[in-house]
Design a protein around this nucleic acid. Sequence first.
RNA 1: GCGCCCUUAGCUCAACUGGAUAGAGCAGCCGCCUUCUAAGCGGCAGGUUGCAGGUUCGAUUCCUGCAGGGCGCGCCA
Length: 618
Amino acid sequence: MARALRRGLYRQHDRPSGHSGAQGNVRRLSGDPMNIFTRYQREVCRVLEDMVKAGELPAGLDMTRVKVEPPREAAHGDMATNAAMVLAKPAGKNPRQLGETLTQKLKSIQSVAEASVAGPGFVNFRLVNTEWASVVLDILKCGAAYGDSAMGAHEKVNIEYVSANPTGPMHAGHIRGAVIGDALAALLEKAGYDVTREYYFNDAGTQVDVLARTTHLRYREALGEDIGAIPEGLYPGEYMKDVGQALAARDGKKWLGKDEGEWLAPIREFAVGVMMAEIRKDLALIGITHETFSNEREIVEGGTLEKVFKTLTDMDLIYQGTLPPPKGKEMEDWEPAELTLFRSSRFGDSSDRPLKKRDGTWAYIMPDIAYHYDKIRRGYKWMINVLGKDHGNYLDKMRPAVSALSGGGAKIDVIFCAMVKVLKNGVPVKFSKRSGNIITLREMVEEVGAGAVRFFMLSRTPDSELEFDFAKVVEQSKDNPVFYVQYAHARCHSVFRNAKEMWPDADFSVEALLKADMKRLDSEEELKLVRLMAGWPRHVEAAAEAHEPHRVTFYLHDLAAAFHAFWNKGRDDATLRFLIEKDKDLSFARLALVKAVATVIASGLAVMGVEPVEEMHG
RNA sequence: GCGCCCUUAGCUCAACUGGAUAGAGCAGCCGCCUUCUAAGCGGCAGGUUGCAGGUUCGAUUCCUGCAGGGCGCGCCA
């Protein structure tokens, strides 16, 4: 979905106002001084505005496209701005010339060591080393909060994920969406949004009736009856035995020999309660706790559907009409009929949609629309839904309704997750609900651990298929990204363990490290690490804006790689070791750096919901 | 038939929302352990970013068309 946003159809009206620079002439500022790139973007814009004042540039230039970024090639410098290229045309200037002028002005900034024009008009510049050293100090001061952004401005966001029907335990098919939703929630919180984690369960459809009937059967079994095989159409899983037994324990023989009409509703309520409790327990195993649980029955029984219908009617968006038959698809039983239609085509839908079936009862999408109306009423500007890819056109159906019911004020985004292929020793595990052959979340967590499960689920973009191979997930090698990142973190701590042996009486607290002489960090390897870490706040913002938590995984892999590389440099070149007994000052500067690396890795893992490991031994 | 998604190295995937010479890992080849964890690192090789156009200073990224793969499709749940 994020890609769909990127490609554009809804891009303009689907961005929260303020992010697109609508209010000012500066692109989008996090307002966060921790982000060194944001700081220099401001510097560049300030310089440009001075040039406007001095008459060197015309007034009224659009500076929203001026960016300051790390260049792809580190050799190009520390930072690069596209200002000259972007402004050349509107200013009626040659980009290289404009770049030259900008270069001269940037050079006069104290913290800028060097600046030059390159390529089609990029202005590259380098910062003095002390400026980079300040990044390490920022990280140490902020701790896990390093990378937090004010971008979200406390805007309320609702993330709905998992939302599995309460008819069985959490299994492999649920986990990906669960983890992605949960990490997205943490990511958006880090980016300054006010996030609610929500679970919506369907307790009003036919599936929960099936659950109730299955429960009743298992209940009879629990009371000693021979029920034989589970009939077609009921849930065959063994887990239902427990539900039957729990009911027998609570109600005794109360429901034996009664009509379904008498027991269906109460047993349904009981079974749903049991299943939801189980689901919550399962989710807790991978650290997922929703703040809000909403259910369809309350929406339906609370009259929300009628309310939505009235609202849409009052807006003159409801009419009686006949839809043309679906194009191209064979429909033998097609008969045109006058239906109650919602003018969704006014909101970008391909055609209007029926809200009532021809028999006058509500159409399937109505409860979902009503549920979103409920979210809008609760004040959410952003509603994000994490769904399986098979829910293909959910967004097409829901977006017009959300748009209409919120007066355009609320936006909905859906993240579609592709399947997870589970492998054991390289062999795909087939699972079918029918035979009850499923891999449960509990099983996965018990076998490989919660952290590894979460990390793997975040190791690819959501819409690409993912292979989850039990053997690979627990493999202790660099080929396993979980291990690789954790190992880097553990190595950081290992350095401190060694430092304590080297200087048993020294103080290694953050306060002490803050006093280290950061000017000593001047090797290319050290600065590479610092630059990478300086980019963490940018990555947080970019990932949050794109609703793509997996980017955190890639970032951590890069950071871990740079750290492992530096570590190994110390093997070839003794002057690059972290701990040098006769140079305590340098060692402490490097310890500050190492502490910063551990802090950023931990900060990223926190977004992913993975516990950092401090020690690993074979 | 219509809609959405995907197509990047032999394989699995990136590319910071339009930037400079498209990057990692695996597989292959060559190196590095009397030294902070070699559970690691360095190097070599590997590409017409599915094809054809377009937009502009500049396209893997945006637009159009085509080809191939996946998913979804009505007033069902």
